[in-house]
Design a protein around this nucleic acid. Structure first.
Lengths: 152, 152
DNA sequence: TCATTCCCTATTTTTCCAGTAGGGAAAATA
DNA sequence: TATTTTCCCTACTGGAAAAATAGGGAATGA
């Protein structure tokens, strides 16, 4: 299960906006430099976020980007969906559209369970929480287990 | 987050073996037909599973493949790791190797939490359970929630 | 010996990811 | 109005990885 560069970049860009005081606009170039993201590639991503209604933009002199909604109302899952489509897919297909035969029939509910779990985490955590380094208790609990950091 | 065709095929092939009575060998061609997997592609996957120690093979007349260990000792996570490498990665990199700056710093524990959760599910469910359509209670609980089947 | 089946290597085809290029449109500033 | 700044749009490219194919070699049982 791989999280794409696009999704990673999009979340980091959104976090930069979430961390900006007030309604000030931030230029794409500034975000790119702060997070080490290729400038033009980032512009495309910010365009996706804008079309997805998560970000507002302003052209010209003092222009730039800002969040379209308060940072505590935007989940990480939303950001990823806007740039990458479905949160979880199998062979590029979203789970409910899959069909399995024979002993593999119970694979579908298994993928559904995985997806539900991912949704639960990424859907409850907001940009505000990550930007402020204040993850919800249950998520922090999972992340704090030393076992979670071990390799394979 | 995308699960590759290879991982999906590998699990389904392993489930066919898990569902086979006794130690009987199953031919690659039979598995391919049962699950609708391209025969030659499947052969490569079965080779990976064999080199990973999950499957044993036998050449010649009555040859074929069978599980190298009891089906209730092989988790879905093991199967996926053998054919695809790390269970979860960000931009192709496994989470502990990532490094984030500024407001994105808490992204790392978040990815870790997601990974821990995926591991928890796929690591506890065995081939035997899926093949017998008897998923563990907690997994079934997640999968039974109608909410989990809704689209986005 | 012969049919069967796994085994190995190489090659192809396709798809998608990540990144680049160049210019046009809007807005502020002067 | 002219100029600068910045977002905005379209196209495109390179390359890697995913998915699949091809062909023959090596073991095994009959």
């Amino acid at each position: 299960m791989r999280i794409s560069a696009k999704a990673d970049y999009a979340v980091r860009a959104a976090l930069e906006l979430a961390a900006t005081e007030g309604d000030a606009s931030v230029k794409a170039e500034v975000i790119a430099a702060a997070q080490g993201i290729p400038h033009k590639f980032l512009e495309g991503i910010l365009g996706d976020l804008r079309r997805g209604g998560l970000v507002a933009s302003q052209r010209g002199g003092k222009g730039g980007y800002r969040l379209a909604r308060p940072a505590d109302t935007i989940s990480i899952a939303e950001v990823i969906r806007v740039v990458d489509g479905p949160l979880v897919s199998v062979r590029g297909v979203r789970p409910p559209a899959l069909s399995y035969r024979g002993p593999a029939e119970s694979l579908l509910p298994l993928w559904i369970a995985v997806r539900a779990n991912v949704r639960k985490i990424l859907g409850e955590v907001t940009l505000a929480e990550v930007a402020a380094a204040k993850l919800p208790g249950d998520v922090l609990g999972l992340a704090e287990d030393p076992e979670a950091w071990t390799n394979p």
